[in-house]
Amino acid sequence: MAWTLFDFVAAGVLLFGAGLTFVLLARMGNNTTYRVAVGVAVAAGLLLVWANMAVGLVGSEDNPANLLYGGVLAVALLGAFVARFRPLGMSNAMFAAALTYVVVTAIALFVWTPSGEVAEPQVHLVNVLVANGAFAAIWAISGVLFRRASATGSASNRQLA
């Protein structure tokens, strides 16, 4: 793969943004489980964006159906803000993101009807389903960890900044 300057800049922005997001959100909780849950959620978001930009999650990176995955990030972010970053609400937001991921994959596969040159015979449906299932599972794991953090009494009154 021959990376251009844009590819390096995009990777740097994604990695820096993910690291900064983790640092800011990890301060919101006072236990290790909350911080691990934040790490898993940030990693899920980073992997979603990176994979979508690099190879695409349904078909190739040029497939417009891949734009639907922005909805997963929107659900996770909106849910986190509505929950005020409290562990139980964050858990619900991550479960909602996992469910959104599954729904978006189903919609993308329904909308994406490969034919002709874009059929991409090397992309098998099973591979797409397994990869997307793994990504959805990462969001769900984050939800489980946030649920566990809420049970262990993470600080719910801490504010960002």
Rank of each mutant, 00 (worst) to 15 (best):
G133A: 04
V13H: 04
R35A: 13
A76P: 14
T113L: 01
A11T: 07
G59R: 03
Q122K: 14
V103E: 09
S150F: 01
W50L: 13
G116Q: 09
V38K: 01
A43V: 15
G70E: 12
S142Y: 00
F22Y: 15
P87I: 02
G71M: 01
Y34V: 06
L48W: 02
N92H: 13
G153I: 14
L129W: 11
L25Q: 09
A140K: 12
A131H: 03
Q159P: 04
S156Q: 11
A161S: 07
L125K: 10
A76R: 00
A18Y: 05
A96H: 05
N157F: 10
R147E: 03
G56S: 13
L160M: 15
P121S: 04
L67T: 06
A140R: 07
R84K: 14
A151H: 07
N92R: 14
L48V: 07
G12C: 13
H124C: 00
A136N: 08
Y34P: 10
A96D: 12
L47G: 09
S91W: 05
R158C: 11
V128S: 03
V82T: 14
V144Y: 03
L73N: 09
T105R: 04
L129N: 01
A54M: 08
S115R: 14
Y69R: 03
W50H: 08
V118T: 11
A41L: 13
W50K: 02
W50N: 01
F146A: 02
N31W: 08
D7A: 00
T152M: 04
D62L: 14
L15A: 14
A108E: 05
S115Y: 08
P87F: 06
G56L: 14
G29D: 11
A140N: 03
V102F: 13
D62M: 12
L57Y: 05
R27W: 06
A65T: 15
W112F: 14
L48C: 04
T152L: 11
G70D: 10
I138E: 06
A26L: 09
F6C: 00
G12S: 13
L77S: 02
V130P: 07
L145R: 10
L68S: 07
